[in-house]
Write a protein that binds this DNA or RNA. Structure first.
Length: 579
DNA sequence: GCCGTTTTCGGCCCGACTGTTTTCAGTCG
């Protein structure tokens, strides 16, 4: 098994954890963690970069030493430092760090004092009341450990889909805004950065009397548990299991607090360093110079004082946005109102919940100029996929329906299955009657990388192919991506004038942010498709736009921001390469 | 172990809450 980027990142993170338990130089392990984060963030496999002769020490946070370590790891499958560390401390100790309330110091004490090397041994020691015998540990800590182990066993620590988190977050936010004494309230964190999943909710509140408001929020009726509650910070767990951190700051600190709690952590660290280099101190209360407040009431004021333009939350991942801001090279990000239509939807003809007319009216209600109907083809039997005859009838129905609309064009398409050998599931004779063809893989997801890539490239070579839907097939938290050589897929997309989809279903968001960004950088056109199976799902478009923004895309990078006339030209069959 | 708008050496982000303490360490975000 070739070494993947996440193998490298995981190895460095485990090494950092072990060194921290072993009380090594904290700055050295931070360097390992930074390197892990850099490796994890690379859109291309490190092994390919090495094969191409690239110098890893040019990556941020990776110097000559770590570059050498990574190279040897890719060659041998062993990280020498990790082997040495596990000789001194059992690797299982790192599992203790996953328990809330246990950090490196306590893990070390539990190991040294009681020989504990696993969560099971920890639970037994707690039940036997041995933990309270250790210095620095008391009865409450012992009980908390048992509670956290039990909670961890019952609830998977999985992150919550952004769309699911919204259903809990928005009512909570409305409720907080109605509390007396509350001035402003907003949700920050990965929710505001529009990550596809969130670990918890970070709510920023401003109030003249923070302490009163901070205590008041514990009375929200969806609260399952008050984890902590102080003068300015309250941590809750909602009944759905989602953790919520509520920070209450004085009015003038709103911008600084929003910036601080929006993160990401890496973006904040980079910005605080920038502040420090200019003689400032940056925290959640503001930007300070010698105790004097320089900025903080708005985010813009914070960035401006650091000689930067405001950076959109979706970009704040320390993936080059600060350098881009410095060089006045931030992208003009796509907005929801740039979207002029939707090219991937289903009707009752296959597995949708509404018929053609209902979907068309819903599209018109949303102000779109065009709607592409793309039901499944026959291979997807569970979805009642269309054969040639049924698709031919739908084409006639769409022609008739188009007479009824002045401001909306209904486009004829089909989400055609890409069979195992790369052939399409319907004959050319019927596909030629469509406005455009969408290809998608729904079967044989486990093919090896080379075979899967060849299969997709074969389908992309079909002259009628225009869009590849949900290219990697992943389902967030459920199923990983199919194995593909994306660089070759990008090349084929450019050569054959094919757009790659950002599927806007909250569970898919496929391509993901980093792959979509790499696609655009390679010159590929993207398209945001809702894959809607009902009128309500047309509103998933906003999730697709959010993901596109995280991918640094502008409106011009996205096919369905074009007016219908331009779109038809781009989708026209028989477009030749370079045309 | 990395890195440079003060530095090739000497720094490395910063504050809140809890529990076990008698003044603060550990953890978390």
């Amino acid at each position: 098994m070739p070494v993947r980027n996440r193998d490298i990142a995981n190895a460095f993170e485990t090494l950092a954890d072990l060194l921290e338990i072993g009380e090594a130089n904290p700055f050295r392990l931070r360097a390992y963690r930074n390197a892990a984060s850099t490796v994890r963030d690379q859109s291309r496999p490190i092994r390919d970069m090495l094969a191409a002769g690239e110098d890893l020490s040019e990556l941020p946070g990776i110097g000559d030493d770590l570059a050498g370590q990574i190279e040897r790891y890719v060659e041998t499958g062993h990280l020498a430092g990790l082997d040495a560390a596990t000789d001194r401390l059992p690797a299982g100790l790192t599992a203790l760090l996953d328990i809330n309330g246990i950090g490196p110091k306590r893990a070390h004490a539990l190991y040294e004092g009681l020989g504990i090397t696993s969560v099971e041994a920890l639970a037994k020691a707690a039940r036997d009341q041995r933990i309270r015998t250790l210095p620095g540990f008391g009865e409450k800590t012992e009980q908390r450990i048992l509670y956290e182990i039990d909670r961890q066993a019952r609830h998977s620590p999985a992150r919550t889909l952004l769309a699911d988190a919204e259903e809990m977050a928005e009512p909570l936010l409305d409720w907080i805004r109605q509390r007396s004494g509350v001035d402003q309230a907003a949700i920050a964190g990965s929710y505001r950065r529009r990550r596809e999943t969130v670990g918890d909710l970070d709510v920023v509140v401003t109030a003249g009397d923070p302490a009163t408001v901070s205590r008041a929020v514990t009375h929200y009726d969806d609260v399952a548990e008050v984890i902590s509650s102080g003068e300015t910070r309250t941590t809750l767990r909602l009944r759905g299991g989602l953790q919520v951190d509520i920070r209450v700051v004085p009015d003038g600190a709103y911008g600084a607090a929003m910036h601080y709690f929006t993160g990401s952590r890496d973006h904040n660290i980079a910005l605080r360093r920038r502040a420090q280099a200019r003689g400032f101190k940056l925290n959640e209360y503001g930007l300070f110079k010698d105790e004097q407040t320089v900025a903080g009431d708005t985010e813009e004021s914070v960035y401006k004082s650091l000689s930067l333009p405001w950076i959109a939350p979706e970009l704040r991942e320390n993936r080059g946005e600060i350098e881009a801001a410095e060089n006045d090279a931030l992208p003009g990000l796509i907005e929801r109102q740039d979207i002029r239509g939707n090219l991937h939807t289903h009707t009752t003809a296959s597995d949708g919940k509404a018929d053609l007319a209902e979907m068309a009216e819903a599209a018109q209600d949303r102000g779109w100029g065009y709607l592409g109907i793309s039901d499944h083809s026959r291979a997807v039997r569970v979805a009642h996929g269309l054969d040639s005859d049924r698709l031919a009838r739908q084409i006639d129905e769409i022609d008739a329906l188009n007479e009824r609309f002045d401001d909306l064009v209904i486009l004829k398409s089909c989400e055609v299955d890409i069979l195992s050998d790369g052939a399409l599931d319907l004959p050319d004779a019927i596909l030629e009657r469509l406005d455009y063809v969408i290809g998608a893989i729904h079967s044989d997801l486990a093919l090896a990388r080379r075979a899967q890539t060849e299969r997709l490239l074969e389908a992309m070579a079909h002259p009628l192919m225009r869009i590849i839907a949900h290219p990697t097939g992943r389902l967030i938290g459920q199923r990983g991506p199919i194995a593909l050589d994306l660089d070759r897929v990008f090349e084929a997309a450019i050569d054959n004038h094919i757009a790659l989809e950002i599927n806007a279903q909250p569970k898919r968001l496929d391509l993901n942010d980093q792959d979509a960004r790499a696609a655009r950088d390679a010159g590929v056109m993207l398209v945001i498709g809702t894959d809607a199976h009902s009128p309500a799902q047309l509103d998933f478009m906003r999730h697709g736009v959010d993901q596109a923004r995280r991918a640094w895309l502008s409106a011009s990078d996205v096919l369905n921001t074009r007016p219908v006339g331009d779109l038809r030209k781009l989708l026209a069959p028989g477009r030749s390469a370079g045309g």
